[in-house]
Design a protein around this nucleic acid. Structure first.
Lengths: 337, 337
DNA sequence: TTGAAAGCGGTACCAC
DNA sequence: GTGGTACCGCTTTCAA
């Protein structure tokens, strides 16, 4: 397991040339005579020599690695973004490594201070921190995905949360709903906040004043979706529609509805945010606001690599790409009018 | 974004000491006078200096990083293993990075040849390669998880697939089933093969000869579960029970049963392998063979770190840890007798 | 207690 | 074309 590693020096010695020449052959930049090249290549082969990437990185300050840092690796939304990133990175010759912070700020900080954070060429970040200061301290090409903090100093790839929620709520209204509840979580990030206000505006525009009791705030957890749906449906005046603002809340809501022996799209209308297994399984299937998850990863990665390749001098000003969402209508919203 | 990095030299110069002394203060090993230590610490603070981990690693050959390489990051089984790994690694002061090979051998090879594979201290590997040769080439502390290849030269943390399948099949038999189908995939790895033969033995022991048409082999995909369940149930002599040998096949089977308008545990009995969302959602819930996924990650990581810390001389002989599985009985198996 | 200097394993510039 | 060599940023003897 731990024989002394073979180095470029060994190769040079055995080939009877200098390390410089071996280096040339490895990188194929400078030209080397065919004879020596052949000989060196043979020795490399024989010795099964693999250059130490770290040593190389020390001098040229490049690792050709990207990190994608997500809050939670178990959430299919994030794994889809990761998939897009890996694909796009590979195309450009970069390797990708994944880090999950498990929604823990300390964990996120450790990444940046540790080996990884300091040695990747760039970072795709779905952050956990809420203050711009944290992000401003990141001195490395970074693209924020999904969650964006104003004044953070980095580019972002986002989706139009406001519009997604607006469309969902409007869909309810158009179908004649007025008692429309929303289950979300803390408004720590733009995404959650925007979804709430999108919903809010759609209602207002149609003269509906959202009843305070219809706004349930948890922690963006499945159990919140479950508990609040239970509460709502068992209250004196249950809503006719529920907007579940992320995929796990939606899962919880579906389970609650099932346990309450209610029929989706009949006894209660439901719209979720993001695709999820259950939403596609139940009958009728659940209408959701879909976002181009994989595409977000791809776009972010392309921006990132672009940025990495741009000489420090000519950095352009900050930009944010906003991708569109789509209301995927299925059968979970009952027509009341 | 790219001001010149601060180095240990800058600190040394400003503190009016040698780099050696700064290094001492940073690592806290050697003793340094209180006065100089204070001064150096102040400068480090002021400059916001963070040492270059790569340079350090070059000399002490340690990165304190572990990689966990999985075939597919979207599969909850693997993310659970990852979770266990991250937890255990953290306890011992190691960072963990995740790499998904997407079931692609080339991708897996690239990892080992690239920056990451060469610079982590150890690897938790759920491999994609099928030949022992590939694994024997890995010259780094490595633990194989779940999938094990004989003669690979590494320790492993496995589960008793044979027994899990055996228990599942026996459960069917005890409940009076005789027409028991099994859906699996290629027997490339021990896990799949063992599951098939566990099933096979249980039937044989009870004098049941598995009908060839009841063994459906696909690619371990959800669509296989769906397609084969359809085929089986629409055949001239449909089985009374189906053993879905992994989580996604089970998901597919559940969907097919739903689309066929059949009732689980009534028209068709079903047992899955590994927990999954749908198995717990449908009514009645689906009986599954459960494995201690997170625990597998933890055990593997502890073995790995142990190994990393063991001096090369005194390596012990190979060992495999086999964790137990558990048949989680729920309502999806009908009593026929 | 502190400093000088020799690496770690490469890269790249400058000579020849 | 090829070799010599000064780094990259840090750790670690060895001396002082």
């Amino acid at each position: 397991m731990a024989e002394k590693e073979i180095t470029i020096k060994d190769v040079a010695r055995l080939a009877g040339v200098s390390v410089a020449t071996v280096s040339r052959v490895m990188n194929g930049r400078d030209r080397v005579s065919d004879a020596t090249r052949k000989k060196i290549q043979r020795i490399i082969e024989e010795l099964n020599f693999v250059p130490n990437t770290m040593a190389a990185s020390m001098v040229n300050k490049k690792t050709h690695m990207l990190a994608v840092v997500v809050p939670e690796i178990q959430n299919p939304f994030y794994t889809a973004v990761i998939g897009g990133t890996v694909e796009a990175a590979k195309k450009e010759g970069f390797s990708t490594l994944v880090v999950s912070t498990y929604n823990d700020e300390a964990e996120e900080e450790e990444f940046f201070e540790g080996f990884l954070g300091r040695n990747v060429d760039g970072i795709i970040l779905i952050g956990t921190h809420k203050e711009a200061g944290f992000y401003r301290n990141i001195r490395k090409p970074t693209i924020l995905v999904d969650r964006y903090i104003n004044d953070c100093g980095h580019d972002g790839v986002l989706i139009d949360n406001f519009r997604g929620a607006y469309e969902a709520a409007r869909h309810f209204v158009e179908y004649g709903h007025e008692r429309i509840a929303i289950i979300d979580g803390a408004h720590d990030f733009n995404d959650g906040k925007d979804r709430y206000w999108g919903y809010h505006q759609a209602l207002h525009e149609h003269g509906i004043v959202p009843e305070p009791g219809y706004h349930k705030q948890g922690k963006w957890l499945e159990e919140d979706g479950y508990r609040f749906t239970m509460e709502l449906m068992q209250s004196a005046e249950p809503p006719t529609a529920i907007f579940a603002t992320n995929n796990v809340i939606c899962t919880g809501a579906i389970k609650a509805i099932r346990d309450l022996d209610l029929r989706i799209g009949e006894d209660i209308s439901l719209i979720g945010f993001d695709e999820n297994e259950l939403a596609q399984f139940v009958q009728p299937r659940v209408t959701v606001v879909g976002r181009p998850m994989r595409e977000m990863g791809i776009q972010a990665t392309e921006m990132l690599i672009q940025k990495i390749k741009t000489p420090p001098g000519e950095q352009t000003k900050l930009k944010r790409i906003v991708l569109d969402v789509e209301l995927i209508k299925r059968g979970s919203v009952k027509k009341l009018n």
